[in-house]
Amino acid sequence: MSTKTDKIDALGELSAVKQDEHGVSLWTEAFRRVRRNPSALVGMAILVLFVLVAIIGPLLAPYSPTDTMGIREGVIRPGSIPGPSAEHWLGYDHQGRDQFSRLLVGARQTLLVGIVSTLIGLTVGALIGGVAGAAAGLGGRVGRAVDSVLMRIVDMLLALPSLLLAVSIAALLGASLTTVMIAVGVVSVPVFARLLRGAMVAQSGGDYVLAATSLGVKRSRIALTHILPNSLAPVIVQATLTLATAIIEAAALSFLGLGNPDTSTPEWGLMLADAQPYLDGRPGLAIFPAVGIIITALGFTLLGEALREALDPKLRK
């Protein structure tokens, strides 16, 4: 750390010339560090591929994902689902649809569920955690009371097993894709809330908060421009990691039959559920969507871990 600072000091004039107009924020520097991290690059490569497939997958698909051609052609018989061939790279599914096409088209819904549900969790969680954190850090006696109430609610959410909570929400709202997103999102709310609240409380004790207070800066402004930006790093890392678990949880809900009732629209979790009765004869039906889920989750996790390393001041060299 110190050698780096020395270098920055020594090169201050030089680098300043190169930076011309703008300062280098800690975020810019963090992204530079992410780019130098090989596992982050692998993670990003996976994610770029995944997002590409999600966007243009339907164009790449050799067949319609809903066309039950196997049944029409009579190749699907009880106990016999043809496996991979030159025409159908991953074979047919149990309804005679092209498995490869379904995998490509299914990426979109999988990604959509992951992103939307994470955003739900992030927004609601950050709102609760932000209010609680600001109140606890700066609000005095009343603030501590507000914080206590909010956090006890969050604790109650956290006490329920996440899948159980998601299942009850899904059961309450009826099975649909929106339900899956909401359920998975709500499950991650307490995580975000506690994380942001904790980071904000920790930051409120910082010297720069004391310094800003000593200059008469208003509490609301201190919370928004000083404490909040300094507390976001762990939340962003968590968001990346939550994307991975959200995809897995959404798949689990689909698997349990709480997902999109229109079962002809491909989605990886649903494909996994559909493959269950055929695990003996055609394990490929389960393996391919499962591998898709795992690799995607791995991509998000790799990126998230790299972000965590890049943003953690203690790991900075």
Binding site: D207, Y208, A211, G216, P229
Partner: peptide, 22 residues
């Protein structure tokens, strides 16, 4: 009063400045 009539300078200039704000 703080900052307008009475102001304070602290010991550690690095930690007294917010690192993520220009």
């Amino acid at each position: 009063i703080r900052g307008r009539d009475v102001a304070m300078i602290f010991q550690d200039p690095l930690s007294s400045l917010n690192p993520v704000v220009p």
